[in-house]
């Protein structure tokens, strides 16, 4: 399952960050999105816009494409 499969309000644990873009991956790590962390989907923008997730009480906006390369369970 990937992050974008979650519905609004659902929580899951990150299993793998398969983000291609190295810089982006670093940024996500530093924001606390890493293996073993709980993430919650807070909102999704319309027309395939960004999703808003929360990790450790920190809300983050990221694009659908990147969110779909974050594997969760």
């Amino acid at each position: 399952m990937v992050l974008t499969d979650l519905h609004k309000g659902e929580t899951a644990v990150v299993v793998r960050l398969a983000v291609e873009h190295e810089a982006l991956k670093q940024r996500l790590l530093h924001l606390g999105v890493k293996e073993g962390k709980m993430v919650r989907v807070k909102a999704a923008m319309p027309f395939g816009g960004p999703v808003m997730v929360e990790v450790d009480g920190q809300a983050i906006g990221l694009r659908r494409k990147e969110a779909s390369s974050i594997e969760v369970k």
Partner: peptide
């Protein structure tokens, strides 16, 4: 050129 977006709220 690729575009990227990640932002802290």
């Amino acid at each position: 050129e690729s575009s990227l977006f990640v932002i802290e709220l």
